[in-house]
């Protein structure tokens, strides 16, 4: 099997990506065809990658559509990546979690998912002594568990509490999401799906069973839905003061106080 020169391959993938994101019909197709099918199809074809710096994958969270008590995205992530808890909340893994926010004065409240923000200047990558924390060319921040020694300095450095340390033995990992005791892990933006031209499991699940609050796409492409909506909303970067330029953006509109 020959490896085609990278730019055409990427364009193809990106093109497919954009077409898939173009409309509701595409999302419906995706929801009918689980990610595993996409992966299978991709495996049968040419090898994917390498990841290109021309794209920057990102997520837009519209907290107006994020329902109270809804954690479809969390469940989807758990199933997709196989991180289950053992009823020990303080040491259980937490790739994505629902955070509630309350305005102290008015009592208005929001909920939104919090996960790895895939920063352009990630502190976890800066501090990692072995280079196990790294940022892929397309902006996805990952842990190379082959060289992670479990020092947890990245967890000290992350402003979002987005990383978990695997505190105990792991069994029944998903084939595409290896994870093991003594290493650090976090949201991968479902990199295995993205490489195969798919979208993250949380986005897919939110579109299907949640409020459609998550938009995935290429922030570098001004015509992409995510870029247009991010611009229209003046979407928030969490801890923007740190200047890390996260790839996950939040739309937090005003909401009336309850009761």
């Amino acid at each position: 099997m020959k490896m085609p020169p990278s730019p055409p391959a990427n364009n193809t993938v990106d093109g497919a990506r954009r077409r898939l994101l173009a409309g509701a019909a595409a999302i419906a197709t995706l929801s009918l065809a689980p990610g595993v099918v996409l992966i299978t199809a991709a495996e049968a074809k040419a090898p994917t990658g390498p990841a290109s710096a021309k794209v920057r994958w990102g997520l837009l969270v519209d907290s107006a559509k994020c329902g109270d008590g809804c954690d479809v995205c969390v469940d989807a992530c758990r199933t997709e990546n196989g991180w289950t808890g053992h009823g020990r909340p303080r040491t259980d893994p937490q790739w994505i979690r629902m955070v509630s926010l309350r305005e102290p004065a008015g009592g208005a409240s929001w909920t939104l998912p919090m996960m790895c923000q895939h920063c352009r200047f990630p502190p976890c990558v800066d501090v990692c002594p072995t280079g196990a924390s790294f940022r892929r060319a397309d902006g996805i921040v990952l842990v190379d568990k082959h060289i992670c020694i479990g020092c947890r300095y990245c967890m000290m450095a992350c402003p979002y509490n987005a990383r978990s340390f695997v505190h105990e033995d792991v069994a029944e990992q998903r084939p595409h999401a290896p994870r093991g005791k003594g290493t650090v892990e976090s949201c991968t933006l479902c990199v295995h799906r993205i490489d195969a031209g798919g979208i993250p499991a949380c986005v897919e699940a939110c579109g299907r069973a949640g409020g459609g609050a998550l938009t995935f796409g290429d922030l570098n492409d001004p015509d992409s839905e995510i870029a247009r909506r991010a611009a229209a909303y003046a979407a928030v970067r969490v801890r923007a003061d740190l200047g890390l330029d996260p790839a996950v953006r939040y739309h937090i509109p005003g909401r009336a106080a309850k009761r």
Binding site: P89, M98, V99, E103, P104
Partner: peptide, 8 residues
Amino acid sequence: GMEPGSGF
């Protein structure tokens, strides 16, 4: 400025 909360 906000009051956050979560299972975490």
